[in-house]
Amino acid sequence: MDTGQPRTEIEAAAEAAQLIAAAYSPAPHTPLATAYRDTTPVPVYGPTPPVHQPDRRVVPEWAAGIAVAGVGLGCFAALTGAGIYAATAGIAKLTIWGVAAIAVPFVGISAVAIAIGTAIRCVRAAAPPVTHHHYQGAVTQHHQNITTRGAIARTRINQ
């Protein structure tokens, strides 16, 4: 209530606290937010053994590795050349052959490192696979029918 006289600090703080409390209190007709958590156990359909999930990648692992290594070598060679150019920009005129001659040892070392890593991976792949599983317990099976239709994809999940 405004009486025309300036308020004291205590009155202003009390009115501010009252306004803040009124702003954050729910209106009388607004329902309070509720939450419900269903704690009933999920039905188990039996002691189903684990099923092997085969790896179905579109790109072979070796091809993806070579692609990543190629991108890495290209970035390494480009940054090495840029660094050498930046270091010697005012001292000498560099040609592409000079940059290539300087980068050859670095690219060679990287190629040897990639070859060693590939050989180690191939040796590991030749080892017999581990056939035990690290998980225990019953497996539940949930079947869902998922359909997606329309120009703006509407997905419906039927359980």
Rank of each mutant, 00 (worst) to 15 (best):
3 T>K: 13
3 T>N: 12
4 G>W: 04
4 G>D: 00
5 Q>G: 04
13 A>S: 08
13 A>N: 14
14 A>M: 15
15 E>M: 09
15 E>I: 08
16 A>P: 00
17 A>G: 02
19 L>Y: 06
21 A>N: 04
22 A>C: 02
23 A>R: 12
24 Y>Q: 15
24 Y>V: 13
26 P>M: 08
27 A>L: 12
27 A>W: 06
29 H>I: 11
29 H>E: 13
30 T>N: 12
30 T>S: 11
32 L>V: 12
35 A>M: 12
36 Y>I: 11
36 Y>C: 03
37 R>K: 07
38 D>V: 02
42 V>T: 09
42 V>W: 04
43 P>C: 01
43 P>F: 02
44 V>A: 08
44 V>L: 12
45 Y>H: 10
45 Y>L: 08
47 P>G: 13
48 T>M: 07
50 P>Y: 09
55 D>R: 15
55 D>H: 10
55 D>Y: 15
58 V>P: 01
59 V>Y: 06
59 V>S: 02
62 W>D: 12
63 A>M: 14
64 A>C: 02
64 A>Y: 07
67 A>T: 10
67 A>S: 08
68 V>R: 15
69 A>Y: 05
70 G>W: 01
71 V>Y: 07
71 V>K: 14
71 V>R: 11
72 G>F: 06
72 G>M: 09
72 G>Y: 05
72 G>S: 06
73 L>C: 09
74 G>C: 02
75 C>M: 12
78 A>V: 14
79 L>H: 06
80 T>Y: 15
81 G>E: 02
81 G>Y: 00
82 A>N: 11
84 I>V: 14
86 A>C: 00
86 A>S: 11
87 A>M: 10
87 A>S: 14
89 A>G: 04
90 G>M: 06
90 G>D: 15
92 A>D: 05
92 A>Q: 08
93 K>A: 13
93 K>R: 14
94 L>T: 12
95 T>K: 03
96 I>Q: 06
100 A>V: 09
103 A>Q: 02
105 P>G: 00
106 F>C: 06
106 F>D: 01
110 S>C: 08
110 S>K: 10
111 A>Q: 00
112 V>Y: 14
112 V>D: 00
115 A>L: 11
121 R>G: 09
122 C>R: 08
124 R>F: 14
124 R>V: 07
125 A>I: 07
126 A>H: 04
127 A>R: 12
128 P>T: 04
129 P>A: 15
129 P>G: 01
129 P>V: 15
130 V>K: 13
131 T>M: 09
132 H>R: 09
132 H>L: 13
133 H>E: 14
135 Y>P: 05
135 Y>A: 11
135 Y>M: 07
136 Q>D: 12
137 G>D: 00
137 G>Y: 04
140 T>D: 05
141 Q>G: 11
141 Q>V: 10
142 H>G: 07
143 H>D: 14
143 H>P: 02
145 N>C: 03
147 T>F: 03
148 T>H: 02
148 T>A: 14
149 R>N: 07
152 I>D: 07
152 I>M: 06
153 A>N: 09
153 A>P: 05
157 I>Y: 04
157 I>C: 01
